[in-house]
Design a protein around this nucleic acid. Sequence first.
DNA 1: CTTATTTGGAAACGATCGTTCTCCAACTGT
DNA 2: ACAGTTGGAGAACGATCGTTTCCAAATAAG
Lengths: 203, 203
Amino acid sequence: MMNADAATRPPGRPREFAIEDALDKAIVVFSERGYHAASISELKEAMGLTAGSLYKAFKDKKAIFLAAFDRYKQVRNALLDQEIGAGTNGRDRVFRMLRFYAEASHGESGRQGCLVVGTAIELAVYDAEAAERVGRSMARSEALFNRLIHEGQADGSISKRIDRNATARLLLSVTQGLRVLGKTGPDRDQAFSVIDAAMKLLD
Amino acid sequence: MMNADAATRPPGRPREFAIEDALDKAIVVFSERGYHAASISELKEAMGLTAGSLYKAFKDKKAIFLAAFDRYKQVRNALLDQEIGAGTNGRDRVFRMLRFYAEASHGESGRQGCLVVGTAIELAVYDAEAAERVGRSMARSEALFNRLIHEGQADGSISKRIDRNATARLLLSVTQGLRVLGKTGPDRDQAFSVIDAAMKLLD
DNA sequence: CTTATTTGGAAACGATCGTTCTCCAACTGT
DNA sequence: ACAGTTGGAGAACGATCGTTTCCAAATAAG
C-alpha cells in the first residue's frame, strides 16, 4: 500500500541531517576561508558530516559551494526584502537597503564576508556557473536600487534630477566596497557614516 | 683588486633574471587566480623559472606573494601619484583618482582584478602580514582622498559643507566596489558613469 | 521474510600541493 | 689556478587535496 503521508518518503535509509542546516554551516566556512582554502576536511567538520555522506548529498566540492551560494542568496534576499518592505517611501527604502549592507559589513559578519563578493573575486573569472550567479546577484541588487530610486522620484522623496541608472550602479558599488572594507575592519560608526554620506546622492 | 663598478657584484653565480620582471608576471597570476588557486607550477611557468630558482629567490609561496603585493603597490602608487599630480585643483584631483580606478576596473584589467581587494577577501582574515598590508593600503587611499578633498575645500572647488572624513571613506568604498564589479563585467561607459555620479558628493 | 535502495562511517585512492635535495655550471676574490 | 659561493634544472619528498570504495545500518516494496 502507498504511504499515507503527504510527502511520500523515498526508498532507502533516510538522511540523518537537514541539508539546509549543513549548508548554513558551509556558508560560514566558504565565506571566511574562500572556495579554495576551504578544504573538504574543514567542511566535513563544520557541517558535522563524513566524506561519504557529503558526497552522497552533493556531486563534488563545487556543487556544495553552489548550493551554499544559492542558500545564502535566498536567505539574504528574504531578509533584505523584509527590511525594504518596512520603508515608508523611496528614499527611506534606499536608506534601509544601504543600512542592511552597512550592518553586514562591520564586526563579526564583516570579517566573515560576503559570499557574492568572494565568489566574484575568487571564482567568477574561471568558472562560468559561478560567474552567472554573481552576475545575476549584482543585476538584482542594481535593479532593486534602480526601482527604489524610481519610487522615490515618484513619491517626491528623491530628486527627479538625478541619473537613476548611474546612481543605482554607484550605490551598488558602495555596498560591494563596504563588504571589501569590512574584511579588515571599519567599525560600526564608520560603516554608517559612509551610508549617511551616500544619501546625499539622492538630493 | 676590487671591482671597479659602482655597485660591487656579490659573490657567486649571478641571477639570470630580474626579480622585478618575475614579480610582474607573478602579479598577473595572483591577481587573476588568487593566492590559493595560484599553484607553484603556474607561477613557475608564468615567471619562467624552475622550482629551484624560485625557492632561492624567495623563502616560500607567501614570500613570493608578499613581494608581488609590494611591487604591485609600488607601481600602482607611482602611477596614481603621477595622475593626481596633473590635476589643476582639489576637485580635479579627486576626479582623476576616481578615473584611475574606473580605468583599472573595466575590461581586461578589470577581469585581472586588484591584488589589494583579492588579498583583503582571501587572505586578510587569516594572515596578519597580509592584513597589515591591506590595512595600510586602504588607509593610504582614504587619507589621500581626505587630503584631496581638503585641498579642494581650500581652493574653492569643493564645498566646505561636506563631511571630509565620511566622504573620503565613501569614495574609497566606491573604488573598491568598482574593483569587485569589474570582475564580472561592467563596461567602460558604465564604470565612468559611476564616477561621474560620485562627483556629486563634492557639491 | 527477502530484495532493492539509500545513508553513515571509515579506510583508502591517485593526484597535486608546496618544498627540498642533488648535481653541475657560473661567477667571485685571493 | 683555486677555493668559496650562488644560481639553474629537475628529480624526489611528505603532506594534503578531492574523491571513491566498501560494509553495516536503515528504510520501502514485494
